[in-house]
């Protein structure tokens, strides 16, 4: 692999962008394809799209002999939780075990304490402020759990604008209907706010905060693994 390609690959990783390194196993030639690249004239477009979705590296046989190896490089998924609440205390360690970088944001310093959240990145700030430290992106999931519009609404609209792969909000259908009215009054179109998963979590009959955390994490994993497709998990 030439140094320029290695450098470009490392740059995409540092910038939390998805990329695939295509290596011709016969000639040794390499090229880098970023997820943001225009793929209209790309003979491998279907293979690349599938691999950007699954994150799996592997070999593609070329017509007429030869083989290409696709090394898929996806940014590590992140979970941003709005609300240092009871559900978050269970969700944070579970999500970390599942491989997510977790950050909890809550301006209420009585909630956002290291005693309640020992091993997790905790920002005791308003989302407006916290998002200057932690940039939302398409490999970030956001779960809004405070029930407080003053805290949740901005975070939700920011997550939708940043094209987060998962945006979920705690609250009943009635609460959510009012939330949609508020977000649409802020100028967010209905087809955008429709991306919010609410009531949050897969319907598994969860009752305790820990069980609700399981249902939220399962929904997030589902969204990650169907990223870039129209598949919406049934609720």
């Amino acid at each position: 692999m030439d140094l320029a390609t290695l450098h470009a690959l490392n740059e995409t990783r540092r910038g939390r962008q998805a990329a695939i390194l295509v290596t011709d196993l016969d000639s040794g030639a390499v090229r880098l394809v970023r997820e943001t690249d225009q793929l209209d004239d790309e003979p491998l477009a279907a293979h690349l799209a599938e691999r950007f979705r699954t994150g799996r590296s592997g070999t593609v046989d070329v017509e007429g002999g030869g083989a290409l190896f696709l090394t898929v490089s996806l940014p590590p998924p992140r979970l941003v939780v709005i609300g240092a609440v009871h559900i978050s205390q269970a969700l944070a360690p579970m999500a970390r075990i599942a491989g997510f970088d977790v950050t909890i944001i809550d301006p209420r310093t009585a909630f956002a304490t290291t005693e309640r959240f020992p091993d997790v990145a905790l920002l005791p700030q308003w989302p407006e402020e916290a998002f200057e430290t932690i940039a939302l992106d398409p490999f970030t999931a956001l779960a809004a759990l405070t029930h407080d519009p003053k805290i949740d609404d901005f975070a939700l609209s920011a997550a939708l604008s940043a094209d987060c792969f998962y945006v979920g909000a705690l609250g009943s259908r009635k609460t959510h209907a009012k939330r949609l009215d508020r977000l649409q009054a802020l100028g967010l179109p209905g087809e955008v706010t429709a991306r919010i998963r609410a009531p949050i979590g897969l319907a598994i009959g969860a009752q305790s905060p820990a069980e609700i955390a399981v249902s939220i994490l399962a929904e997030i994993v589902g969204a990650l693994r169907t990223r870039g497709t129209d598949t919406l998990l049934s609720r």
Binding site: N10, R13, R78, V102, T103, V120, L122, L123
Partner: peptide, 16 residues
């Protein structure tokens, strides 16, 4: 306050 991201040894580190 701890760091925003947890340290994760990953394939990217080897390439870097």
């Amino acid at each position: 306050m701890s760091g925003v991201l947890n340290p994760r040894p990953a394939e990217s580190d080897v390439l870097a």
